[in-house]
Structure formats: C-alpha cells, structure tokens
Simulated assay, not measured.
Amino acid sequence: MNFKNKKILITGASRGIGKATAQAFAEKGAQVGLNFRSNIEEAKKTLAELYGKGHQLFQKDISSKANCQALVEEFVNHYGKLDVLVNNAGISIFHEIDTVDFDHWTYAFEEIFKTNLFAAANLCYWGAQAMMKSGGGRIVNVSSRGAFRGEPTKPAYGASKAALNAMSQSLAKKLAPHHIYVGVVAPGFTETEMAAATLTPAERENLLRESPFKRMAKPEEVAHAILFLASDGAEYSSGAIIDVNGASYLRS
C-alpha cells in the first residue's frame, strides 16, 4: 500500500488505534492531520514520533458540530485537499439499566451519541463535500464488535456503533458515483493505554478467554485493516465491515 503525498485526517489520533493508524499512514508516505480534543502533550508526542514530514496537529472537540466543519475546512486550507478521513474518535460510559438513575442513563446516551455517531456523521458530511470537489476519496469509520454482540453494561455504546455501521453502508451506496468509498473496521477489545489503565485483572482475564488467540488486538492490527480500506484497489470493498476481533465474536 502506497500513500505517498496522500492527505489523511484522523480523529482521536493522539493515542491507541488513532496513533497506530497515523504511524502506519506516515510510514507509507502520507501527510497526516492528527485531530485531538484536549491532551496536547500526548498529541505533540505522537506528532514527533511520526515518520516523514508535513504532519500537523488539529485541536478540536468534534462533539460540537461547528467544530466538525471547522476541522475539515482547516485541514483542507492547510493541505489543499482531503484524500482519506478516518473517524476513529469515540467515548464509552458505563450505564447499566438496573443500577443507574434516569439522569445518568440519558446523560450516557446523549454524550456517547454526540461523539460516536453525530460527530462521525458531521465529519462524513463535510469530508464528502471536500472530496467531491477534488474528485473523490476514502472514508473509514471505526466501529466495534459491540455493534453486533450487544453491550449490556454500556448499551448506548453498542447502539451508537450499530448506527455508525448502518450510516456507513448508506453512504457507501450514495457516494460511490462520486468516487468516494466508505468502509468500516470493527475491532474487538484492543490493547491500548486506556485498556491498561482501566481494566481490572479479572476483566483482563475474561477478555483474554474470549479469543482463541488468548490476547487482545494490537492497535497496529486495527490500523492495518483501516489502511486496506483506504488504499487504491479496495474500491469494490466499499460498504464492507471488517471484523478485527481475533474470532472472539463471529457473525453470519
């Protein structure tokens, strides 16, 4: 896969899957715009680690729809065009229906959908506008196996990712005549800094038992699938959802 001189925008790019994806694109010759919300020190560290030159930080809270438009416009003003948009940013809040009050329940749905679905939808809109002007492009949305298997402790998370899948497939149909191809990567639990900081030993053991590989996904493995969907030659995979969960959840 060769992305020489391609202009790539990645949300939630300062760490985890976003960081690994930025590194993978940079190593293939791309110029990468790293979107992040607040952790500027982590973002600067990621930027400094990227191979090559011409990469740029874009600090924006994309849960604001105005910021979504501003992010794409600033990116295009800086680079001249947008070749690939990777909607990776996402949040998760625990909200078990049998333990939380109604205020927390509604708060979790509103906050999760604001970032996981509405931000991705808004960025798809503005990204598609930019791509139509330049002759085409790629959009890759990062979903989750939770869209298929259910998320009993955080149902809004699973619902937001299921909606993201459906939206992505609708856009794949609509945007194909404009030479804009849309794909989805649905990871299982991934070995990131956040996972290391939040998982208890018992939770980790349970997760390891779910896959016959007896491990979690590596961020680089998720990035590999993202790069495939963004690459030249993958056009006829538009609308596809690629599972990267180590056979921990298999769907027919």
Results as ranks from 00 to 15, higher is better:
residue 1 M to D: 05
residue 2 N to Q: 13
residue 5 N to Y: 11
residue 5 N to E: 15
residue 6 K to H: 13
residue 7 K to S: 07
residue 9 L to T: 04
residue 10 I to K: 00
residue 10 I to T: 06
residue 13 A to W: 00
residue 13 A to I: 00
residue 13 A to M: 00
residue 15 R to S: 15
residue 19 K to W: 03
residue 20 A to C: 03
residue 21 T to G: 01
residue 21 T to Y: 00
residue 26 A to P: 02
residue 26 A to H: 00
residue 27 E to N: 01
residue 29 G to I: 05
residue 34 L to P: 03
residue 36 F to N: 06
residue 41 E to D: 13
residue 43 A to I: 01
residue 44 K to L: 11
residue 44 K to N: 09
residue 46 T to E: 05
residue 49 E to S: 13
residue 49 E to Y: 05
residue 50 L to C: 03
residue 50 L to E: 02
residue 50 L to M: 00
residue 51 Y to P: 06
residue 52 G to Q: 04
residue 56 Q to K: 13
residue 58 F to R: 08
residue 64 S to G: 11
residue 66 A to R: 09
residue 67 N to E: 15
residue 67 N to M: 07
residue 70 A to T: 14
residue 70 A to V: 12
residue 70 A to R: 09
residue 74 E to P: 06
residue 77 N to R: 10
residue 77 N to M: 05
residue 80 G to Y: 07
residue 81 K to E: 15
residue 82 L to V: 09
residue 82 L to C: 04
residue 84 V to C: 11
residue 86 V to N: 03
residue 89 A to V: 07
residue 89 A to M: 11
residue 89 A to P: 08
residue 91 I to E: 14
residue 94 F to H: 14
residue 94 F to T: 15
residue 99 T to D: 15
residue 99 T to V: 14
residue 103 D to V: 09
residue 103 D to A: 14
residue 104 H to V: 03
residue 105 W to T: 01
residue 110 E to R: 02
residue 114 K to H: 07
residue 114 K to I: 05
residue 123 L to M: 06
residue 126 W to I: 05
residue 130 A to N: 03
residue 132 M to N: 10
residue 135 G to Q: 05
residue 136 G to Q: 07
residue 139 I to K: 03
residue 143 S to L: 07
residue 143 S to A: 13
residue 143 S to Y: 02
residue 145 R to P: 02
residue 149 R to D: 08
residue 149 R to T: 14
residue 152 P to Y: 09
residue 156 A to H: 04
residue 158 G to T: 01
residue 163 A to L: 02
residue 163 A to M: 01
residue 166 A to C: 09
residue 166 A to Y: 06
residue 167 M to G: 11
residue 168 S to K: 01
residue 169 Q to N: 04
residue 170 S to Y: 09
residue 171 L to H: 11
residue 171 L to A: 09
residue 173 K to A: 14
residue 174 K to I: 12
residue 178 H to A: 15
residue 178 H to D: 15
residue 179 H to F: 13
residue 179 H to S: 14
residue 183 G to K: 04
residue 184 V to T: 15
residue 186 A to F: 04
residue 188 G to W: 08
residue 189 F to M: 15
residue 190 T to M: 00
residue 191 E to P: 08
residue 192 T to E: 11
residue 193 E to W: 06
residue 196 A to M: 10
residue 197 A to F: 07
residue 197 A to S: 14
residue 198 T to M: 08
residue 198 T to R: 04
residue 200 T to I: 06
residue 203 E to Y: 10
residue 205 E to W: 07
residue 207 L to S: 02
residue 207 L to W: 08
residue 208 L to C: 06
residue 208 L to D: 07
residue 211 S to I: 02
residue 217 A to E: 01
residue 222 V to S: 00
residue 223 A to H: 02
residue 226 I to F: 04
residue 228 F to T: 12
residue 229 L to F: 01
residue 232 D to K: 13
residue 234 A to L: 07
residue 237 S to M: 12
residue 237 S to W: 10
residue 238 S to W: 04
residue 239 G to E: 03
residue 241 I to Y: 05
residue 243 D to V: 08
residue 248 S to D: 14
residue 249 Y to E: 10
residue 249 Y to M: 12
residue 250 L to C: 13
residue 251 R to L: 14
residue 251 R to F: 12
residue 252 S to H: 14
